[in-house]
Measured scan of single mutants.
Amino acid sequence: TTYKLIANGKTLKGETTTEAVDAETAERVFKEYAKKNGVDGEWTYDDATKTFTVTE
């Protein structure tokens, strides 16, 4: 399944996707990606669109 991340960070803005077996796995991947890019904010997830959003 393809999951999408929308990053609304102070230093990183944009979108990326990952293939994962479930939302929990995708969330781990995206949180690691955000951490590597210095983004720390509020996370939301929309199951209907398989989209995570992080906003600083």
Rank of each mutant, 00 (worst) to 15 (best):
T1G: 08
T1Y: 13
T1L: 10
T1M: 11
T1P: 07
T1N: 14
T1A: 12
T1K: 09
T2Y: 08
T2R: 10
T2C: 09
T2E: 09
T2M: 11
T2Q: 10
T2G: 04
T2W: 11
T2F: 09
T2D: 04
Y3K: 01
Y3I: 01
Y3M: 01
Y3A: 01
K4D: 02
K4A: 04
L5F: 08
L5Y: 03
L5G: 01
L5M: 07
L5C: 06
L5E: 01
L5P: 01
L5N: 01
I6H: 05
I6V: 11
I6T: 05
I6A: 05
I6E: 04
I6S: 04
I6R: 06
A7L: 15
A7C: 15
A7M: 15
A7K: 04
A7W: 15
A7Y: 15
A7D: 04
N8G: 05
N8F: 13
N8W: 11
N8V: 14
N8I: 15
N8Q: 10
N8S: 09
N8C: 13
G9A: 13
G9I: 10
G9K: 04
G9C: 15
G9H: 10
G9S: 13
K10T: 14
K10P: 15
K10G: 11
K10M: 14
K10Y: 11
T11D: 11
T11H: 14
T11W: 14
T11F: 14
L12P: 04
L12M: 11
L12C: 14
L12K: 04
L12Y: 15
L12S: 07
L12R: 03
K13R: 12
K13M: 12
G14P: 08
G14F: 15
G14K: 10
G14H: 14
E15K: 06
E15R: 05
E15Y: 13
E15T: 13
E15H: 08
E15Q: 10
E15D: 06
T16R: 09
T16H: 14
T16C: 12
T16D: 04
T17R: 09
T17S: 10
T17E: 09
T17D: 05
T17P: 02
T17Q: 09
T17M: 11
T17A: 07
T17K: 08
T17L: 09
T17I: 09
T17F: 15
T18R: 05
T18I: 15
T18L: 14
T18P: 02
T18V: 14
E19L: 14
E19D: 11
E19W: 15
E19V: 15
E19G: 04
E19N: 13
E19P: 04
E19A: 08
A20Q: 09
A20G: 04
A20S: 06
A20C: 10
A20D: 03
V21T: 13
V21W: 12
V21K: 14
D22F: 03
D22Y: 03
D22C: 05
D22P: 01
A23L: 10
A23Y: 15
A23F: 14
A23I: 10
E24Q: 11
E24H: 11
E24P: 10
E24Y: 10
E24A: 13
E24C: 13
T25K: 06
T25W: 07
T25D: 08
T25I: 08
T25Y: 07
T25P: 02
T25E: 15
T25V: 09
A26C: 01
A26V: 02
A26S: 02
A26L: 01
A26N: 00
A26P: 00
E27R: 09
E27T: 04
E27L: 15
E27I: 08
E27Y: 15
E27C: 12
E27F: 15
E27P: 00
E27A: 10
E27W: 14
R28Y: 07
R28F: 08
R28G: 06
R28Q: 11
R28W: 08
R28E: 07
R28I: 10
R28L: 10
R28A: 11
V29C: 08
V29W: 15
V29E: 08
V29A: 08
V29P: 00
F30Q: 00
F30M: 02
F30Y: 02
F30P: 00
F30I: 02
F30D: 00
F30W: 02
K31Y: 06
K31D: 02
K31P: 00
K31C: 05
K31M: 07
E32I: 08
E32Y: 06
E32L: 09
Y33H: 05
Y33T: 04
Y33S: 02
Y33V: 06
Y33E: 03
Y33I: 09
Y33R: 03
A34S: 05
A34R: 01
A34M: 10
A34C: 14
A34G: 03
K35F: 12
K35S: 11
K35V: 09
K35G: 06
K35T: 11
K35R: 14
K35Y: 11
K36E: 13
K36I: 11
K36H: 10
K36M: 13
K36S: 13
N37L: 12
N37Q: 11
N37A: 10
N37M: 13
N37T: 06
N37V: 11
N37S: 07
N37E: 07
N37H: 15
N37D: 03
G38Q: 08
G38I: 04
G38D: 06
G38E: 06
G38C: 06
V39H: 05
V39K: 02
V39T: 04
V39S: 03
V39F: 15
V39R: 02
V39E: 03
D40Q: 12
D40W: 14
D40P: 03
D40G: 07
G41H: 02
G41D: 02
G41N: 02
G41A: 03
G41Y: 03
G41S: 02
G41M: 03
G41I: 02
E42K: 12
E42W: 13
E42M: 12
E42N: 11
E42Q: 13
E42A: 11
E42V: 15
W43Q: 00
W43A: 00
W43I: 03
W43N: 00
W43F: 04
W43K: 00
W43H: 00
W43T: 01
W43C: 01
T44M: 10
T44R: 09
T44W: 08
T44E: 11
T44G: 06
T44N: 09
T44C: 11
T44A: 11
T44K: 10
T44L: 07
Y45P: 00
Y45R: 02
Y45F: 07
Y45A: 00
Y45S: 01
Y45W: 03
Y45V: 01
D46H: 06
D46S: 06
D46R: 03
D46V: 05
D46P: 00
D46K: 03
D46T: 05
D47I: 08
D47K: 09
D47F: 07
D47W: 07
D47A: 15
D47H: 11
D47P: 13
D47M: 08
D47R: 06
A48M: 11
A48R: 10
A48H: 11
A48V: 12
A48S: 12
A48F: 10
A48E: 14
T49N: 07
T49E: 06
T49K: 07
T49I: 06
T49G: 04
T49L: 07
T49Y: 04
T49W: 03
K50H: 12
K50D: 02
K50T: 03
K50F: 09
K50P: 00
K50I: 02
T51N: 02
T51V: 06
T51W: 02
T51I: 06
T51Y: 02
T51E: 04
T51A: 04
F52M: 01
F52L: 01
F52K: 00
F52T: 01
F52A: 00
F52Y: 05
T53Y: 14
T53E: 05
T53P: 00
T53W: 10
V54D: 01
V54N: 01
V54M: 06
V54Q: 02
V54R: 01
V54T: 02
T55D: 07
T55P: 01
T55H: 08
T55E: 07
T55K: 07
E56T: 07
E56K: 04
E56S: 07
E56W: 09
E56P: 07
